[in-house]
Simulated assay, not measured.
Amino acid sequence: MNLLPVLGELLRCPNVSHAANRLHLTQSTVSGSLKQLRLLFEDDLLVQRGREMVLTEKAKELRPAVERLLEQASRLFCAETFDPATAANCFRIATADYVSALVTSRLGPVLQANAPGVSITLTPTPGTTAKDLRLGVVDLIICPNRRENWEACGIAAHDPEFCHEVFIRDRLVAIQSANRSLAERPLALADYLARPHAMYCRTDGQPTIEQETLAQMGLVQRIQFLVPYFTLLPQLVVDSHLVALIPLSLANHYARLFPLDVFEPPVPFPSLDLVMIGACHRADRADLYWLRKIVRDSASSFLDIGNEGGCLETASACAPTDVDVTTAGTPLLPPRALARPGHGENRYRVSEESVSPSSSALISFPQ
């Protein structure tokens, strides 16, 4: 049993000196434990590749089981409780700029009323990696449920180390200035494409949903601005002749601040589902369960706003929308209702098309 924490730390970070620092042990002690583990498993576990150590295939297979054992042992010897009223946790969430804008406006009052000592740091998803989740540097990643977004964080769609929950189904809508001299509705496809556009672009060079859809349909629109932030688009559109495409949740938010005209684009864009991703070995922690709950509850306020136009809905756990994982073997937990405790029957409609029976490779968060 005394080798288990050393094994767990080496599997998370295959570096003897770093593992020793995190375990508050000497480097020689960790090196000695590694020798014992190699004998026990009849495998090198860590091997030199260039200037760094990497895990062997055997070590990669062991990692999920070891993480579960460590988590179970932690709960056995230390019954975890979390009281938001007295907690002083600093949570870290990596997410897109527009999600940050929406979340902060709704979580601020929640923290002030129920968890005054808790703080939340929001960081951009570019640069966030699977390793950050695994080591607890980041508690949650919130991003669109697309292959490109998962892979940008170094997470494969079938990776059993990570839990997920698609907690809201958003979609893209068009915006333009509500100034009567500028607004033109309805816009035919040719007129829409001819209008000057402000477009969101990814900083990693990968195509966005908008760019991908237009390319697949062979359509070209006039682009006047390319910006890396969705939150800039409403400000660019105001008092201009520009048209932009943004998530409906963001459009509803900014329509209360700026004179915006929100309308259906004449191009059928796919849905923009948002997913929470976390490390499975930390998913049962009481503080992270609470964090996911308040994020989920904040999503219900997006839903309430969106339902004024009948447009937004929460969604059950499902695979990235463009990822085929039919050959994977780990069973997905059954879709769960997202009703808040004490509120009885689920008041959010779950779209059946959002639940993919073939999504067997992905593990949903414990509820």
Rank of each mutant, 00 (worst) to 15 (best):
L193A: 13
Q216N: 14
I168G: 11
A87F: 00
Q48C: 06
N2D: 15
D261I: 00
D44H: 09
E352C: 07
F258I: 00
V110Y: 14
A94S: 02
L257P: 02
A157M: 11
T95E: 13
L291A: 09
N179W: 00
L76P: 00
L248P: 01
S364G: 11
G127E: 07
D239G: 05
G108Y: 15
H241S: 12
Q112D: 12
V323K: 09
E80F: 07
A85N: 02
T125A: 10
Q72T: 13
R63C: 06
I142S: 05
S28N: 09
I223H: 03
A157Q: 13
E71Q: 11
D273A: 07
T121V: 15
M1N: 14
T26C: 05
L236F: 12
R22M: 06
S181K: 10
F41W: 10
P196H: 06
A87G: 02
L76S: 12
D139S: 05
L274K: 04
G309H: 11
S177Q: 06
V66I: 14
L312I: 13
R285W: 06
L288K: 10
A244M: 12
D132V: 05
V275I: 15
F269S: 10
S360G: 14
A96C: 12
Q36A: 14
E353H: 09
T314F: 08
E67C: 09
R75D: 11
N252Y: 12
Y289Q: 11
E184T: 08
E352G: 10
H241V: 08
G117H: 07
S364A: 15
L46R: 07
P265D: 15
V47Q: 02
V118P: 00
T95W: 10
A279W: 05
P265H: 13
L4D: 15
L34S: 04
A20R: 04
R336L: 14
P228N: 12
G136Y: 07
T26I: 01
T326P: 01
A19C: 02
A286E: 15
S119V: 10
A315T: 11
R222C: 14
S301D: 13
A188L: 06
V238L: 07
G154I: 03
V47N: 01
F258M: 08
G50T: 09
L39D: 12
E353Y: 08
R38Y: 03
L122A: 08
L338P: 03
F225Q: 08
I155A: 01
T104G: 03
A94Y: 01
A190R: 10
S298H: 06
E42N: 08
S33D: 14
I155G: 01
A19H: 03
Q112T: 13
N145S: 10
T128G: 01
Q211L: 11
L291Y: 09
V262Y: 00
V6C: 13
R340Y: 09
S300H: 04
L257M: 10
L333W: 00
P84D: 09
F82N: 06
V295P: 02
R222M: 14
I277D: 10
P268A: 15
L45V: 02
V237I: 11
L333G: 11
